[in-house]
């Protein structure tokens, strides 16, 4: 086992890990209850934070306390971060094609048709009023 990581790891008692587990459970409860509050109050920010913000916090707690990444060799962190950067690059490269109806030299005819139909529907509705 890595001497470097073990030294740090030995400093943690079982009660430390159980405390982290309790925090994770409380965060899980918050992430389930939060969206109900968000829906009831109509504040979408509550839903987004409790669903995704808390997921990030939970993941951080697991990675830091259970995986001991922060006391691991620096280069381990570098290749984990590199993988995350590749993921973001993939998202940045592919998302415009997936999320937009048209771009440079390409178009999604079905999407445009649906958008036109929706616009016509709204126009007719406005006409009735």
């Amino acid at each position: 086992m890595s001497e470097h990581a073990s030294t740090e790891h030995d400093g943690h008692s079982p009660s430390h890990y159980i405390r982290i587990w309790w925090i994770l459970v409380l965060l899980l409860i918050a992430s389930v209850v939060g969206p109900f509050i968000g829906e009831a109050t109509g504040i979408q920010a509550i839903t987004l934070f409790t669903a995704f913000g808390i997921a990030v916090i939970k993941a951080y707690l697991v990675v830091k306390n259970f995986m001991h990444l922060t006391v691991e060799r620096k280069y381990v962190m570098y290749f984990i971060v590199t993988s995350l950067v590749f993921m973001l690059l993939f998202f940045a490269g592919a998302a415009p094609d997936v999320m937009k109806a048209e771009g440079q030299g390409w178009v999604k005819p079905l999407w445009l048709e649906q958008a036109e139909e929706a616009a016509a529907g709204h126009g007719a509705e406005a006409g009735h009023h």
């Binding site: 982290i20 697991v62 306390n65």
Partner: peptide, 8 residues
């Protein structure tokens, strides 16, 4: 989460 606790 509980199984992660027992693993650590």
């Amino acid at each position: 989460l509980t199984s992660s606790l027992s693993a650590v």
